[in-house]
Structures are given as C-alpha cells and as structure tokens.
Design a protein around this nucleic acid. Structure first.
Lengths: 333, 333
DNA sequence: TTGTACGCGTTATCAC
DNA sequence: GTGATAACGCGTACAA
C-alpha cells in the first residue's frame, strides 16, 4: 500500500502538501495540486481511514442501534439511513439491542467504544434518564421513534397518539362499536402512545374503554394470535380489532381464519406501520402509515448537519401518520 | 480519555507492560497485572480501537455486503452473522449492493477501503472472474449463497438445484401435471440453479418443459403477479405454480385471488426460502426451507477460524434445502 | 518478567 | 503557498 509519504516523494513535495490536496480546502497552487494528484493515481494511493481517524479523531462512521436486524420495520429504517449517509461518504456500524435494557446499554457502549462520530438509536428498554445522561458524553446520540423532552433536538419521532387515534376512529367511522384493542408492550413509548390515541378516539365518540376488550401483546405475530384467542375465550363480542402493529394484525388474521372467521366480513382488522407485506396479506390490511424511510432520512440529515457540518439542511422532528384503507376493514351494513 | 500512558504512570510500570495486560496472553506477573488492572479501572481507561488498528493493522471489523438492507431474507442473514461475530467481539460494517454490478463493486471498494479484516458478501451481479481476482487482494472475501469453484473454500452455499427439484417434485407428487414456473433473474446463480432443479424434476417424471408455462420474474412481489398475469393472458391451463422465491409466490397469490381464483383449490402454489411471513399468508405457503441463519453462522465461523484464528471450528460449506408442506398445496382429488 | 524505542499513516501547528 | 515536526494511542522487536 502506497502511503502519503511515497506520494510526496514522487511528486517532489512535502507530506503537508499532499495532506492538503487530500483534504481539498486548503491553499495549494493548481500546479502542485496537479502534480500530487498524478502521483497518487500513478501509485494507486488510497488514504488509510484508520490513520486518518487517529490523527483527526473522527471516524466518518455513525453507529446505528436498532432493536432487531431483521423485521420489515427495521429493515426500512436501516436502509434509509445507510443510503443517505453513504452518499456523504459516511458508513454505518449496525448493532441490535433486542429491546432489552442490558443489551441496549452494551450496544451503546460497543458503538461508543468504536469511536462512532454519532449514534442513531431506536431503543425501547433504557430509561429517558439514561439517555439524557448518555447524551452528555462525547458521542452525540440521536433517537428514532422516541421523544425525550430534554434532548428533543436530537429526536425524530412519530405522532403515535395521533396514529392510534386514527386507527380506532377509522373503525368507528365504519360503524363499529365493539372494538377490541391489542396493544404493544407498554414500556415501549410508541406502544403506550398508540393506546392513548385509541382511548381518545373512544372517548370522543362516547364509547367506553373496556378492559375485556384489551390485551397486551408482544408486537409479534404471536401477540396477535394470543390476543384474539384471549378475546374469543372470554366470549367477547367484537366486530373490529385494532392492533398496535402490523405483525400482530397478521397473527390475528391467521388465528381468526383458523378459528372459523370469515375475513373480513366477520371481523374487521387494522394494523399499524404499513410494513411492506401488509399489502400481500389476505385480505389486504388496512393500517396506519408510519413514514419510516422519511424518518430515517431525517435522522441521517440531522447528523450530517450537526456532526459533519453540512449546510443547507433543515429537518423535521415530528412526523405524522396517516390512514391507509385496504380490504381488511370493509363497510358494514 | 485516559490513555495507556496514564495507566502506566499510575501503576508505576512501563507502556509495554500495560499493553501486555491489555492483550492478555503475554508473560506478566500476577502482581503487576493486578496493579495495572486497578489503575485502568481507577482511570476508567478504554483502549482506543483506532490506535490499536493502526498499530496492529487489523480492525476487528468484518464487512457485510448484501443485496438489500431490508427484506426478510437479508434480515435473517445479517442478524445471524452479526450475532455470531459480536460474541467474538468483532463488529460488522454493512452496505448494500442492490444486485447491481457497479454498486456491488463500489460496495467492495468501500469495505476494503475501511480496512475490514474480511468481507462476507452476498453478491449477484459481479462475475466469478471479478470475485476470483478480488480474492487475490489483501482482504479475504467470503461468499454467501454462491459457489465459485476456484475459491470454494470461501463459499457457503445452498444446493439450489436440489431445492428447485424438491419444489416441483412436491407438485408432481400432489398429482399436478400442468405446472407453471416463475423463475428469478437468470443472471443470479441461485435463480438459474433452481430452474435447473425444476427441469430435472419434470424430466424425471416424463413431463416436458413448456416455454408457455415459464416466466422470468424479479424475485419481488411484482414478479409473481406479472408472471401469473402472463399465464392467464396466454390462457395457460395450469393447476400448480412453482415460484422461485416466497416474495413472488406471495405476489402471485394476491393476484390470483384478485382474479377470481379460489385458493388453494384452484391453484396450488409453492415458494422458496421459507421466509418468516410465509406462515402468515393465506393460505399458509408451502415452500422450500433455505437455512439462512445456519448459513450466516457458518460464514461467521469461517472468518472466525480463518482470520481470527479461533480453534476448534469446523464449518459446513454446502447446505441442503428441505420441503415445508403447508396449506397452499392441498391434495387434489 | 519488564522496559526502551521505534513504527503505523495522517493531521495539525508552526515557521519560512 | 509550502515544508518541518510534533502529536494521535498503541503494538512490538529488542534489550535488559
């Protein structure tokens, strides 16, 4: 591997000069710049990112901490962030936190230990206090899908209350009155906010929140099937089911069909997130769109602006969900 | 940030000694080791991975090059690799190649430029020659789901011919004779091998391969719907549809239903990969299991063994697919 | 078993 | 504009 030194020798200039053309901006005469560039090409010179990092104490890498590496939701998120960052020549170091406090913390430590210039995290188990404390450290932290007031400038979030409201209101508008709700784990902020929205919608239309029509699932397919089973066993009379995310909705659909429901006639179902496969379920799933790709780009833009000092960037911090009507919620007669 | 130097000072030893306890193995007396360890704790010392890399010319990072960051297939793959590598303290740098030759090449360059100790790649567009040439470079390359004879020791692959064979044979065993096939892009090796298996099965049972019952899709949902539309428009009389992956099968299912098919009675469908959501489709999708997680672990093990010299590891290079029977392929009477 | 001294490839700070 | 020279934080022969 050719080093900056060989280049300087071949071009007949000093190390400093080579370093200058490498970092563009400085004052270098066009003539010498050209000489250096040619020498570089000649030698097939590739700057060492490591040495650069050591000297400049910046790694051009941003850490991404997500709950899972698989799953459509996180796939979209990572994809959007990576793509946007890569254009700027930055790279991502991804690690999963598995919605577990210890693992999330160790994920942060791992990323910080790798000297990431910044971290974009979608964490659910650690407390706000922990995050606030962490934000005081040397590595800037940005939060996806989470709003923490004290560091709101570093948060990109969705209005989940509104989303939950829209979902339930959609059912009400379709004429349903017996609406069951399968929530996500309540320690997760988005899950509890969606539930809040659900209750708001009920209240607005003078429907009472019934504990018998409420179940807390795990945000996975099993949560949906377990929830529906729970309602059936308790002989709950329901015509509509609101699920706090698409995976659970899909699990509920499957369970419903396996237990004699004729979908969507016997039971209207709505999900949340508008994950890709919702459109390929049968019936196609009505859901609430969660603009994950845009939010991912926003997060990337935030670090580009704050950390890498790119100019001309403005970012939106709070995004709005919207209702996507499909076949799983037909009009009732 | 405390450096090795401060630790040495506090512990009253030299830099080398600190370095030694840092890297464990060397000869250090228990007494001094303890002193050093205490000093480290006292100072909250964290070794700089960058300086380490510069001095040792190894980064403890392995590059992962996948086609897409989202999608269930790659999600599983990345997850398995990351998890396994992380246990060994290595981290992954992930970047997508989008099944495009230029992007895949730039992905390799990117990863190599980052001084990854090794690269695990799932690439589809670059040629075998390119990969062989690349393998001669300083960064070892490992291939997922691809077999290149010249570097077979670095390949982890699935017996796709067998998989294709199993899929079609399953249909034949169910009593079907008019079996349509929607293939994946034929420049992708797995796609062409699956097709080969399909033809083998047909031949074995004395069925002729009919161009009218053949369509090349894009491995995505649209490929499935486009393919089925093609068959319908050409008035192909089919009772069974074999798709070269699950996404296409799901797209075909959706299209079939939208066009009056009563599934699974009117049309039996089988997919390939056994991606998570196949189990939540309606009807649940019969498919060929692609042991992606095991293969991911195998790849990770390979670099652990070859690059990081872990002992006691043996890895399987070629994996076998197997048939997963579900509801989309009922017995016919 | 422990310490010395140099090298890894750049960036940054001064002079010139 | 350009060139020395000192960091950056650690690994490692080599010597002791």
């Amino acid at each position: 591997m050719a080093t900056i030194y060989q280049v300087s020798e071949m071009a007949g200039v000093s190390l400093s000069t080579v370093s200058r053309v490498l970092n563009d901006n400085d004052y270098v005469s066009k003539k010498t710049k050209k000489k250096v560039l040619e020498a570089m090409k000649e030698l097939g010179y590739q700057p060492s990112s490591i040495a650069r990092s050591l000297a400049s104490s910046t790694t051009n890498s941003v850490g991404i901490l997500v709950s899972e590496l698989d799953g459509p939701f996180f796939g979209q998120m990572m994809s959007a962030i990576e793509e946007h960052l890569r254009i700027a020549g930055k790279h991502v170091i991804i690690t999963p936190g598995h919605s577990d406090e210890k693992k999330e913390k160790s994920g942060f430590e791992f990323l910080i230990g790798r000297n990431c210039d910044a971290i974009i995290a979608h964490v659910e188990a650690v407390s706000n206090e922990y995050l606030i404390e962490l934000s005081k450290g040397k590595t800037p932290i940005y939060l996806m899908s989470r709003y923490v007031k004290e560091i709101e400038e570093n948060c990109i979030s969705l209005d989940n209350v509104m989303g939950g409201y829209l979902a339930t209101r959609a059912m009400i508008n379709k004429g349903h009155k017996n609406i069951a709700y399968i929530a996500g784990p309540q320690f997760k902020e988005d899950a509890s906010n969606r539930l809040k929205g659900h209750k708001q919608a009920l209240a607005e239309y003078n429907l009472t929140f019934d504990e018998n029509l409420f179940y807390i699932g795990d945000f996975k397919e099993t949560g949906g099937s377990d929830g529906l089973r729970h309602f059936i066993q308790n002989k709950a009379q329901i015509t509509a089911l609101v699920c706090a995310n698409d995976e659970m909705a899909s699990g509920a659909m499957k369970y419903a069909r396996e237990h004699g429901f004729n979908l969507p006639k016997d039971l209207a179902i709505i999900g949340f997130d508008n994950v890709i496969f919702t459109n390929y379920l049968y019936p196609t799933l009505t859901t609430i769109d969660n603009p994950v790709p845009e939010m991912g780009r926003a997060a990337a833009n935030l670090v580009l602006k704050d950390i890498y000092k790119k100019s001309g960037i403005t970012v939106k911090h709070v995004f709005q969900p919207k209702l996507i009507l499909r076949d799983s919620t037909p009009d009732i007669n």
